[in-house]
Nucleic acid binder design. Structure first.
Length: 429
RNA sequence: GGAGAGGUGUCAGAGUGGUCUAUCGUGCAGUCCUGGAAAGACUGUCUGCGCUAAAACGCAGCGAGGGUUCGAAUCCCUCCCUCUCCGCCA
């Protein structure tokens, strides 16, 4: 969340900065309720103070005096209780309004109301020259690696079964990415896939986007929509050592999203699933380093695409398209020849102290002063399913086979080409 | 799922109605002592909010929320969580 003090003292600037986000974020009510809350709080505190004084007096008083004081104390208590009830109500309202406010976009984020205003930063790689390129959902089934129908049968639409080399490719990609990032200094973690509500609030999914996630209602637990949630919340309510920063983690988890509001989008293929695998990169760093760490993290995600020989571009999201918690975000988009367009495969965000405030993650500064909020960052490194789809499309051969990127060959037991008639048992051991 | 125990400051662990933000120890920081260290001595050391230029100060916090009382870490109620044993189980 945004620093409440900043909102109070610079209401106009905050309001203006949020307007760039494209819609509906007024801080007016928050500012008013907050002022009211503080007024009631001082009244409540004054009553408490009087009650405390009376307690002292009663202890030392004579019997007859004591009864008189008790009467006053009772009156004070009644008023205290009233003030407290009001205070609690206002405090709850402030929190509600406060949690609903998105982060302030960084000054370097371009203006714009939707994705058409995003700005390309750079591109990498040569788009492959393919005559009549096929889409991945055309390439996959003949290779025996996707089974869309049975995915629907055992779950519902937007669930897919990976078969044979599809399953092995998916697994190879996970391992490749985790190994790759581990070598670059990210400490691997494998967190729980179900998290409690506090986690979802900490990383900003809730309370705003309640309907977007799968929830085990009987247990008040949520299926993680991204590893960002459990991994960032590892350090919730903790004070980290300044010397340990930056803390860098990579994590594989399956991710679950209801894709509410995505009806009709990417209904074919393996691009938009309710369940998908992803390797996520998460960093906790000093505020003064977050800009630099953001760039590095994005580079780490790009390095995976480069290692897999996949053409991509980096774009910076405009203020209207940026995620709720992010103050700045780069998207990496990989080239899909079959679709003839770039598609998002990684989103690398700098959250500033927005999540750290929600999740209460602090660090002790070098000078041993008061603990301060860390900055958090994360990015996909990468979404596995989309990577698999991109590999299929970019490496397709005229005969329907698919070349395996060099970097992945060791993870597939030396297999260099995916063919329909591959003997899986022989290819992978 | 059944039975029991417990949730207090970095940790450990007292406190069962006021003098308690809370004994003692430990950890941490500083000072002294020392050739240097260890040991020892002394001092300091929680968080949030409010008001402040800052300090001072005020309020709150002993898992959470209610209740009793002038007064609750302490008594009562509800809930949450952790641990141990049994059962079940990858």
């Amino acid at each position: 969340m945004i620093d409440l003090r900043l909102i109070r003292e610079n209401a106009d600037q905050v309001e203006k900065a949020l307007e760039r986000r494209n819609g509906g974020f007024s801080i007016k009510e928050l500012v008013e309720v907050d002022a009211e809350q503080r007024k009631v709080q001082s009244e409540w505190e004054a009553l408490n103070q009087r009650a405390n004084q009376l307690q002292g007096l009663i202890k030392g008083a004579q019997a007859d005096e004591r009864e008189k004081l008790k009467v006053e104390a009772k009156e004070v208590n009644v008023r205290t209780k009233e003030a407290n009830a009001l205070r609690n109500e206002l405090e709850g309202r402030v929190k509600e309004l406060h949690l609903a406010l998105p982060n302030i976009p960084d000054a370097s984020v371009p203006d714009g109301i939707d994705e058409t205003f995003n700005v390309e930063i750079h591109t990498w790689g040569e788009k492959p020259q393919i005559a009549n390129p096929k889409e991945h959902w055309e390439l996959g089934p003949p290779l025996g690696i996707f089974d869309f129908e049975r995915g629907v049968k055992i779950a519902e639409s937007r669930f897919t079964v990976l078969m044979e080399m599809g399953a092995k490719m998916e697994r190879a990609l996970m391992n490749f990415m985790l190994d790759f990032h581990s070598r670059r200094g990210y400490k691997e973690v494998f967190p729980p896939i179900l998290v409690n509500r506090q986690c979802m609030i900490g990383t900003g999914q809730l309370p705003k986007f309640e309907g977007d996630f799968y929830k085990c209602a009987d247990d008040e637990l949520y299926l993680v929509p991204t590893a960002e949630v459990p991994v960032t919340n590892l350090y919730r309510d903790e004070v980290l050592e300044h010397a340990d920063l930056p803390i860098m983690h990579c994590a594989y988890t399956p991710n679950f999203r209801r894709e509410a509001g995505s009806a009709g989008k990417d209904t074919r293929g393996y691009i938009r699933q309710h369940q998908f695998n992803k390797v996520e990169l998460v960093k906790f760093c000093l505020p003064e380093n977050s800009e630099e760490e953001h760039e590095k993290l994005t580079r780490d995600a790009e390095a995976i695409l480069e290692a897999l020989e996949l053409p991509y571009r980096r774009i910076i999201l405009c203020a209207g398209d940026i995620g709720f918690c992010a103050r700045k975000c780069f998207d990496l988009e990989v080239w899909f020849p079959g679709q003839n367009k770039y598609r998002e495969i990684s989103s690398c965000s700098n959250f500033g102290d927005f999540q750290a405030r929600r999740a209460n993650i602090k660090y002790r500064p070098a000078d041993e002063g008061k603990a301060r909020f860390v900055h958090t960052l994360n990015g996909s490194g990468l979404a596995i399913g989309r990577t698999l789809a991109a590999i299929l499309e970019n490496n397709q051969q005229p005969d329907g086979s698919v070349r395996v990127p060099q970097a992945l060959v060791p993870y597939l037991g030396g297999l260099t080409v995916l063919r329909r008639d591959d003997n899986v048992a022989e290819a992978v051991h």
